[in-house]
């Protein structure tokens, strides 16, 4: 089974790359592959010119220290049997081997950095609100000063008011700590707010990628247009959708032949049903996989 196929992107230092797509399109699987939580059968993951695709866990300790992640469900990503203090201190103890007093002061620093009160350190994760729990998860992830942070729908489980706070915190931390992010989201407005570059995924494939401005202002692929117009539709009710979504996404386990989007695409031709479009450039670093532009 190929859940994800032909997904290729690069993240530059200090940049935010967003992977956008509807649920089930395989964007989280890409993150899990980068984190080596699922096996990669073909393709390569290269970090800082080192191929980590097939390395064993014992060979990955340096990588774990430099690549961290924040998950979708904040409460679920914290061990309910540990105190918040120990959760934040765990990576420090494991990777840095620093004396206890220093762990203590670092944890307090981190708590302040992510905007949590110190009283929280003695509590168990279940007593935290969603936003607080996500801040704890962020504190844990940045505690060992990684270079790359993978964000898997970091705000989709939170209240709307908390979402903005967490996104601002992440932008803030990126500047302070010189981080790079890979952001996975189904929400194109989150991508618009955060990303430098955007890759749009559909059923396990990247259908369009470019800088965030280009993708958002001049979308080419019909699916990207559909995503953007439906987001606009939510924001401004008066605006008519230029594209109507046709039906539900088909199964990723058994994708349709040809272009994977053709059953829902208003511009689909006979060719789209038979042949898969290649990812081609249309000039100035704008890539799209659609027969309309070949």
């Amino acid at each position: 089974m190929k859940a994800v196929d032909g997904v290729s992107f690069t993240v530059e230092r200090g940049q935010i790359h967003a992977l956008v797509g509807e649920s089930g399109c395989g964007k989280s699987t890409v993150l899990r592959a980068i984190l080596r939580l699922v096996d990669v059968y073909s393709g390569r993951i290269v970090f800082d010119n080192v191929d980590i695709t097939n390395r064993g866990e014992s060979d990955l300790k340096w990588y774990r220290r430099r690549v961290q992640a924040v998950f979708q469900n904040p409460q679920g990503s914290l061990n309910p049997r540990m105190r918040v203090f120990d959760i934040i201190a765990e990576p420090l103890r494991l990777h840095l081997k620093i004396p206890r007093e220093e762990v203590l002061s670092r944890v307090h620093e981190l708590t302040k950095l992510v905007g949590l009160p110190e009283s929280i350190l003695d509590q168990s994760p279940q007593s935290l609100s969603g936003g607080q729990a996500q801040r704890v998860a962020i504190a844990r992830a940045i505690s060992i000063k990684p270079d790359l942070l993978l964000l898997d729908e970091p705000t989709s489980a939170l209240d709307v008011s908390t979402q903005a706070q967490i996104l601002n915190l992440l932008l803030d931390l990126k500047e302070k700590l010189n981080l790079s992010y890979v952001l996975v989201t189904h929400d194109i407005s989150v991508a618009r707010y955060m990303a430098d570059t955007i890759g749009v995924m559909y059923l396990g494939k990247i259908v369009e990628k470019s800088s965030a401005d280009t993708v958002l202002s001049e979308p080419l692929h019909p699916y990207t247009k559909l995503l953007i117009s439906s987001a606009l539709l939510l924001e401004e009710k008066s605006l008519e959708s230029t594209l109507k979504p046709i039906g539900e996404p088909p199964s990723a386990i058994n994708p349709p032949p040809g272009c994977r989007f053709h059953p829902r695409c208003p511009y689909a031709t006979e060719k789209c049903k038979r042949e898969e479009p290649p990812l081609v450039t249309t000039g100035k670093e704008h890539f799209v996989a659609c027969w309309l532009y070949v």
Binding site: Q68, N79, L94, R140
Partner: peptide
């Protein structure tokens, strides 16, 4: 949280 622990290393 088990996946998160793996990611921590």
């Amino acid at each position: 949280y088990v996946e998160a622990a793996k990611v921590v290393g």
